[in-house]
Design a protein around this nucleic acid. Structure first.
Length: 154
DNA sequence: GCCAACGTTGGC
DNA sequence: GCCAACGTTGGC
């Protein structure tokens, strides 16, 4: 089992939007980065825990936990010319882009802010705080995952 | 295959 | 809104 962190801009899709979604589940579409795609295609498995992170907003923070409920499958938004994520290079017979479905497990009563994460020595190695990391899907170590969970309970 | 220009992300 | 850090593109 692997642990993950996904980023979303709350202005576009927040954890509250996820909570309101059918079955509290959403497809993680629109990822147009090869490394992030490879993670979803090759390594994300059903049942993997996923931290949900709000980026590019007033208080960047991990705001809840999800789990993977559907493993990598073609991102159909790439086939739709009207979709903002349309990619003419992705063919139905040979999709370039892949997504997974995630379901909300728990919204943190207390979000774990980027500041708090940065202030922990034990968390200084997670990809999120390493400079210039702009991946929207990234792996997190088990210990780091558990540390963030425990920080949300304080 | 190099590399400059450009676009995007995201913290601040 | 600024800017640093990347990823991508395209000329050569």
């Amino acid at each position: 089992m692997k642990y993950w962190l996904v980023k979303s801009e709350p202005e576009i899709f927040s954890i509250n939007d996820l909570e309101k979604s059918k079955n509290k589940t959403t497809c993680w579409d629109g990822v147009r980065n090869y490394q992030a795609r490879n993670y979803m295609r090759d390594e994300m498995k059903i049942g993997d825990p996923v931290l949900f992170y709000h980026s590019n907003c007033e208080v960047p923070a991990v705001v809840g936990v999800c789990e993977v409920v559907k493993e990598g499958y073609p991102d159909f938004t790439a086939f739709d010319p009207k979709d903002v994520h349309y990619d003419p290079k992705s063919k139905k017979e040979e999709p370039t882009w892949v997504m997974a479905d995630i379901k909300l497990v728990k919204k943190f009563s207390k979000p774990v802010t980027l500041n708090e994460i940065k202030s922990k020595r034990s968390l200084c190695k997670i990809p999120l705080v390493q400079m210039g990391n702009r991946l929207s899907v990234m792996p997190v170590g088990k210990e780091e995952y558990e540390e963030i969970i425990s920080m949300s309970l304080l």
